[in-house]
Amino acid sequence: MKTDFKLYMKLFTSTFYLSAFTFGGGYIILPLLRKKFVEEYGWINENEMLDLMAIAQSSPGAIAVNASILIGYRLAGLMGALMTIIGTVLPPLIILSIISSFYASLRHNILINIVLKGMQAGIAAIIIDVTVNMSKDIFRQKSIFPAIIMIGSFIAAYVFKVNIIFIILICGILGTLSSAAKINRKADK
């Protein structure tokens, strides 16, 4: 019982620490989780960690949250998953609560307002940069199907304001059908 408690605490503190000090989202936190749980603690072996990361990236939701759920569950069952979830979610919850309480007054501060205005242009550049790089990867596949999906969904979302959930569902179904067809073709050969 005592060792259980120790394990829970360790799961909580390590995910809390990683979540509080990792800037830059899911893809940055994955290698850090690997480092902690594979190299430092030796609780999960390298191959299993790769599998867990693949599942985390295939599931909906934030990748950091998915990965910590899987690690917690793998090491200490549902209670472990609960510990790592709380550890991961608490830092952003606390930090954003503090920021929210200052937000209204800060937004009216002329200086902050100017800086935020500049940063808005910065964030626009970051997002456009991300999408340019991602769409280059799509076109590089030299396959017509993903290109059509991409252009079609863009027009549907941006021009015709089609419900996003609807677009995601349709494209998910199309993806499943196309990969099922690919598997059949391979089986025929």
Partner: peptide, 27 residues
């Protein structure tokens, strides 16, 4: 994870498009 990977293959280009659309709104 074949089924999930199939779904993801279809979704990835759509997700790029949706992010682009939101990015253009911010732009």
């Amino acid at each position: 994870l074949t089924i999930m990977q199939g779904i993801l293959n279809g979704l990835r280009p759509a997700v790029v498009a949706l992010i682009a659309s939101a990015g253009l709104s911010i732009f």
